[in-house]
Amino acid sequence: MNERVEKRSMGLKASRALSNTIIYILLIIMSVIWLIPFVCIVLQSFRVESTWQVGYVIPQQWGFDNYIKLWETNFPKWYLNTFIIALVVAVVQTIIVLCMSYTLSRFRFKMRAGLMRFMLILGMFPGMLAMIILYRVLDDLGMTGNNSLPGLILVYVASSGMGYYVSKGFFDTIPKSLDEAARVDGATRAQVLNKIILPLAKPIVIYTILTAFMGPWGDFVFARYVSQLKPLGMNVAVGLQSWLATDTMTFNNYTLFCAGGVIVALPVAILFMCLQRYYVEGVTGGAVKG
C-alpha cells in the first residue's frame, strides 16, 4: 500500500518535472525572442564601420561615434521637448484625472450617469478626428511647427478627464464609511479628499503619474500633426521616425536611430522598472473593474 502511494507520487513527481522542463524551455525561447530586438539595437548603436542598415548584428568596429554624433543633430532639442512635455503632462494630467475619478466615484449628483454615458460615447470617436481642427486653431495661436511645445501640452492635457476609468475603479474600492466617519467629525468634502482619500490612494496616484509621464515619450500621431515635421518642434518619436523614413534615401541615419533609441529608452525604462509594482496594480485593477 505504502509502496503504491510512493510509486504514484514518484510518477507524479516525474511528470511534474517533465512539464516543468518543457515550461522552462518554452520560457527560455520566449525570453530570447523578447530580448533579441533590444540586444540588437544596443549592439548596433555601437557600430562604427557603417551607418546604414546591414544584415549582421555584431559590429566589426566598436565605438561611441553615434552617441557623439547625436549631439550635433536636433536630437537634444527633441529630447528636451519631450522631457518638458512629459513633466508638465505628468503633473496636470494627474490632477485632472484624480479630480474626475474621485468625483465620479464619491458624489451622486443629478447629471452623473448622463455624464458618464456621454463620455463613453464621446470616446468612440477617433481622437485623431479632433486633431484636424485643433491643428488649425493651434496654428492660428502660433503653437505649431517649431513652437509646438505649448500646443502639444495643451492637446495632451485638455481631454485627459476622459481617462478616468482606472482610478475611479480604485477609488470605488476605498470604503465609503471612511468618508462618512470623517464627515460626521466635521470635515468638509475637500478635507476628506486631502487628508483621508489621497494618502490611501498613493498607488493609483503613482500609477497615474507614471502613465501620464510615459505617454508623451511614445506619442506619434499628435506630435506629428502639431509639429508638422519642423526640425525644432518634434518630439523624440516623430524625430527618430523621420530619420528612419529618410534612411532609405540617405543611408546614414540607421545607427544614429539606434543610439537615439537607446538614449530615449534607458531613463524611461529604468523609471518604469522602479515603479512597476504600481503599474501592475493599476493595470490589473483597471482590467478587472472595467
Binding site: I96, L122, L134, A158, M162, R189
Partner: peptide, 28 residues
C-alpha cells in the same frame, strides 16, 4: 469645498473636454 465640492472638481476637466473634444467633434 463641501456639499458642492464636485462642481469645483469637475469644472476644469469638463471645460477641457468641452473645448478640446466636444467642440472639435461637432465641428468635424
Amino acid at each position: 469645498v463641501d456639499e458642492q465640492f464636485y462642481k469645483t472638481l469637475l469644472a476644469l476637466p469638463l471645460l477641457g473636454i468641452v473645448v478640446f473634444t466636444v467642440m472639435p467633434i461637432v465641428f468635424m
